[in-house]
Design a protein around this nucleic acid. Structure first.
Lengths: 223, 223
DNA sequence: GTCTATATCCGGATAGAC
DNA sequence: GTCTATCCGGATATAGAC
């Protein structure tokens, strides 16, 4: 971040282009929207659009950051209010789905470039590690100080929940049921399972599971 | 399939193009290989390549079919020989990784267009339902008549294993450890867990889990 | 530093001639 | 069935206006 707060013309253009682009993405999908469309709709030249966003991908990265902020804001109140783990997790997940439900078409298109770690827009990439960390932090907040999860297992559990949430999002964007009720049921059912499995997880299998996740090291500290 | 067995020039061209294309994909990745490259390497014009494969995607679909046949063949012997569920599942999974280990770069590129159900090359699409069914069938064969899985739960369990296998493949293609030893450990650890969880799954939570998967209906009969 | 205009490259895809 | 020519859109480059 620079010291200056905001330049009147410059940053405004950037915001303007992003808003226009997201609108077009929602309307016509990602591939269906050309950079020429975006520039024209924003009342700028192609060159100007590329000046602010060096690629179509860069618009997606900006979109991630925006959604992540929105999700954190939407979750905050529930996280402070709700007393138990299960309902906090439900609130977090459903808040995310509510936020994304108009964007399923866009998300399907984005998903195509979202799962190979060497793609910049991948949810596993270095470029998205900050957003990813913030997303995992919401789950950590949801776990809070719940006694059913021992303190030293909380970061790992948050990462596992984030992974679960990815799987649910994958189902969500492809869900053809009315209002995606199937996804809602899947969220509730899988969270029930996870929360019911948590107690045994403290018992005999805990070391095993912890070692497994730790060894996988999907979420090693970002360099 | 048509009635004719094989046209000397035609089908041969098709096979030839596919082989050349897969070689280039392995070497330079999917995006790094152009249809012009493929056509040139195969000694044909661009138009001729498109005559046999209407899109780059079509080459991917043909690749799936080939790999599926190879995996079924590689698994068959172990399925007949190994006496217990756990070792059959391990053999099936490791056979798949052995088969795909030279293709991780290609797979990462393909993955990008592999998870939105409306993409033809998606693992969930109608276009791939036949290959998908064959892949699930291998897991069904691996379950066999094992008593730890009640007969009526076997199809569902096979589908769940296939889903697990997708997650493992996602990890596999991004695995940077030497010889992907981390993936191998993750395969063994998660299969141990699944097989240890199977007995409790027969008990109190069985109805719950079954209902959850059934309701999700990811694998509804192909129309 | 912000932007226009234009020309150009590249690769997937298609049309139509032979 | 195979070819050449062409279109389209993402991306880059450049020269210059303010």
């Amino acid at each position: 971040m620079t010291t200056r707060k905001r330049r009147p013309s410059g940053e405004a253009s950037r915001e303007h282009i992003l808003s226009i682009a997201l609108g077009l993405f929602r309307e016509k999908g990602f591939d269906g929207t050309t950079m020429r469309d975006i520039a024209a709709a924003a009342g700028l030249s192609l060159g100007a659009a590329y000046y602010w966003f060096p690629s179509k991908e860069a618009l997606v990265l900006a979109y991630y950051a925006r959604q992540q902020d929105a999700h954190a804001a939407a979750s905050r109140e529930a996280l402070e209010r709700l007393p138990d783990l299960r309902s906090r997790l439900g609130a977090v997940m459903h808040a995310k789905l509510d936020m994304l439900k108009e964007d399923r078409k866009l998300l399907r298109a984005i998903l195509r470039s979202t799962l190979g770690a060497d793609e910049p827009t991948s949810v596993f990439s270095a470029e998205t590690s900050e957003v990813r960390g913030q997303a995992i932090a919401i789950f950590l907040d949801a776990i809070g100080k719940d006694e059913s999860v021992p303190e030293d297992a909380r970061p790992l559990f948050a990462q596992a929940l984030w992974t679960l949430h990815l799987g649910l999002l994958l189902y969500f964007v492809n869900d053809t049921s009315e209002d995606q009720t199937k996804t809602r049921a899947l969220v509730d059912g899988s969270l029930d399972l996870v929360c019911n499995l948590a107690p045994p997880m403290l018992g005999p299998m805990r070391a095993e599971i912890t070692a497994l996740l730790q060894n996988a090291g999907l979420f090693a500290a970002k360099k």
